[in-house]
């Protein structure tokens, strides 16, 4: 699998560290225990497109938000996580 890093171009996935699903967002203080439980443990775990975080550890060291289909690993979008969700 090759990952289209927005900064470096197509790179082997071995250069990246996988962080996982980008959907969970840390609840802001003060938060209920149930919100933290949801954030830490519960996952949509979709069979289809998922937004997820990859870190280009052996490259530009940017965090990248990738939209990838979990059924066939087709990547439909990649953007720098620092640029937010709108990009």
């Amino acid at each position: 699998m090759r990952i289209p890093c927005p900064y470096c171009g197509d790179r082997d996935s071995q250069e990246f560290v996988y962080r996982g699903d980008a959907a969970p967002v840390r609840p802001s203080d003060p938060a209920e225990e149930t919100e933290f439980f949801d954030y830490v443990y519960l996952r949509e775990n979709p069979a289809g497109p998922i937004d997820e975080l990859w870190y280009h550890a052996q490259g530009c060291r940017n965090w990248i938000t990738l939209t990838r289909d979990t059924r066939d690993h087709a990547i439909s979008a990649a953007r720098l996580t620092s640029e937010g969700k709108s990009a």
Partner: peptide, 18 residues
């Protein structure tokens, strides 16, 4: 492997990734 998919049909989210 597909527990999350079946649980979703019942309106549940599980502490599981595939």
């Amino acid at each position: 492997g597909n527990s999350s998919r079946l649980a979703e049909m019942a309106g549940l989210r599980l502490p599981i990734e595939s």
